[in-house]
Nucleic acid binder design. Structure first.
Lengths: 197, 197, 197, 197
DNA sequence: GATGAATGAGTCTTCATTCAT
DNA sequence: CATGAATGAAGACTCATTCAT
């Protein structure tokens, strides 16, 4: 039942992380192979022993991080919790993972958003996320915890958009405050809205 | 009390719009000066009569669009409406403007997000937006329409993030559906949340 | 009735000739764009205003030279001369043209021979030549000047191969002797062979 | 009086043949050390245990093939045959050897022709060939079989050039027909020429 | 003002060659 | 001897920017 992942040499991951750092600092286009090489302490040519080209580095980076991310996500929502707890766990997990890996957070938010030239496989990342949300919300509706009169397509975007907005702000603030502590207040807003009662 | 705007020649705007189109299609980095020149029907060199450099074009484009955008915003929230109506007007205006100018929507969402190299002035765009939100929410609290126990910093991001999430989805779908119709359901979610009552 | 050739700017030809010189000196692969640029007194980038890439330079060079070459060929064999005179004129023309343009001679003989990656259009150069030979030989057979029991496919190669062998030797000798004077003795060998009578 | 040839290990020849194949397929410049290594089933670095560098491989390849080739040549013209028979044997041997070893044929015809950077030793290959021709022709003149009024320098090129032309054509046709059968008709053309009598 | 030809700095990428294991 | 990972020099090509016309 173990993860069947082909083991990559250390240098592969070394380059991958260096790339993450450089991409986060400069963005895909301004980042140069030389900078990534220097950051990971190898020669330029060495990069090409492990990656097809510059785009491939970004792709592999995102794939690698996504696998970790979604594994964490899945663990966060498995079990018999009620929908509202699951939603809270999901958001908490999301913020925790991004806080722990700010390079990923930056690259993910800035590079993956609108690139039409990035493999659609990477774009599916958010699809997985949205599917998890759908599950949770439907479960919540069945449990009677969540409203039935929800336009699912919108709600999913509403939830994901708000988290990402929070993350973007945190990133823009150079991660100076605790992102994870936003989870509970955020979920509370999802659930209750801002109207006085 | 007249508008203190230096009048720009037509060609300036022609280039600006061409740039918007090309930036939207290819992104800042893949877009070339030649393409912008061709799109606007001028010579490459002409662009440098009106803009300092490539980044300046993006900057001017955003400034120009922002001015229009915030003028519309301001009109949307002026008057004596109650806070919930103003919030609805703000969101409606936001979605309307972006739907009407998809180039701006794409450029704004994809290029402006994380560029550390873009003049901070442009980043202030969202500050203005957030300030409007603050005003509205505070008014709502004073009116008793909105909850008092809100962490303002989070709520603003919550609202803006959700709108942007909805816009991003619309852009990714090539603008195939009506964005503006999302305004009311979205505001309803802001106000009431997703919890069943 | 004038040649309908699109006029190219001087710089196009300047680069073309520089390329010919560099290709002749170093061969296509060892020749660098920088060297060609330097030889023609322009910047590296300028080359790309006139040529798609390095291979394109070779291709254009060959096309340009071929046009001149075959125009000369055609003039050499037109008219009402008998076949043996035409053959002599053809060979004479061939040697004259190559002697006058040693860069072309070298590039043609060394680069065009075996490159599978060169557009077949260029390979057709020798086809035109072989067709001219066919015409001449058939005319000669009709006139009774040339033998009828000739395997045309072989004879054509026999004639062209021998001329090229002579040219190759001349090139290898750095063009130190008069190539054109080889024409008559060569044709005499074609016609009479080396057997004593 | 034994052959003073240093015995080379099998791997040397294995690499040599692999190189011949790869050179024939791609040409010296497009062929990579890695491809040659793979073709011969050794590691890249191993090649440098047997060869100084890439050029040296080509050089050794040509030397090796030349030795075999000229050994065959010498056998073809030794004995007391008359000059015309020797000439025929020489050409026959040439075509036979090249047909049997198409890699050599391709490499020889395409790489050796014009390389100024290839050791002159390799260029001497054709010198040996031309010397053999000289011997044969002079013998033929002494025997009265061949014309006395021949410009030897030209005749040699005439003969070699024509054979090579025939070989080139055969190579370009992917060796689809029988090259050896060209020997007799070709020699017949050498001897009698194409003029009707 | 307008042009667009020219520039050349900047990058990715390849691959012959080396060398620690 | 053999390996093949690592190197880094070299070169094709792009494109923002300039400037003579």
């Amino acid at each position: 039942m173990q993860k069947e992942k082909k083991e990559r040499p250390d240098k592969y991951y070394s380059i991958l992380n260096a790339a993450g750092t450089v991409f986060a600092r400069l963005g895909l286009h301004k980042a140069t192979i030389s900078q990534i090489a220097q950051e990971s302490g190898v020669a330029d040519g060495t990069i090409y022993l492990y990656f097809k080209n510059k785009n491939d580095i970004l792709y592999q980076f995102m794939s690698f991080k996504s696998d970790i991310f979604f594994e964490a996500m899945r663990r966060a929502v498995e079990g018999n919790d009620s929908a509202d707890v699951k939603l809270r766990n999901l958001i908490l997990c999301h913020l925790t993972e991004f806080q722990q890996d700010r390079d990923m957070a930056i690259v993910f938010q800035s590079e993956v958003r609108y690139r039409r030239d990035i493999a659609s496989q990477i774009k599916d990342i958010s699809k997985i996320y949205l599917d998890l949300l759908t599950e949770i919300i439907e479960q919540g509706q069945n449990e009677g915890v969540l409203r039935h009169d929800l336009f699912m397509g919108l709600v999913k975007r509403f939830v994901l958009g708000a988290v990402e907005g929070v993350i973007n702000t945190w990133v823009a603030a150079d991660g100076k405050y605790d992102l994870v502590s936003m989870a509970d207040p955020l979920v509370e807003l999802y659930l209750n809205g801002i109207k006085a009662r």
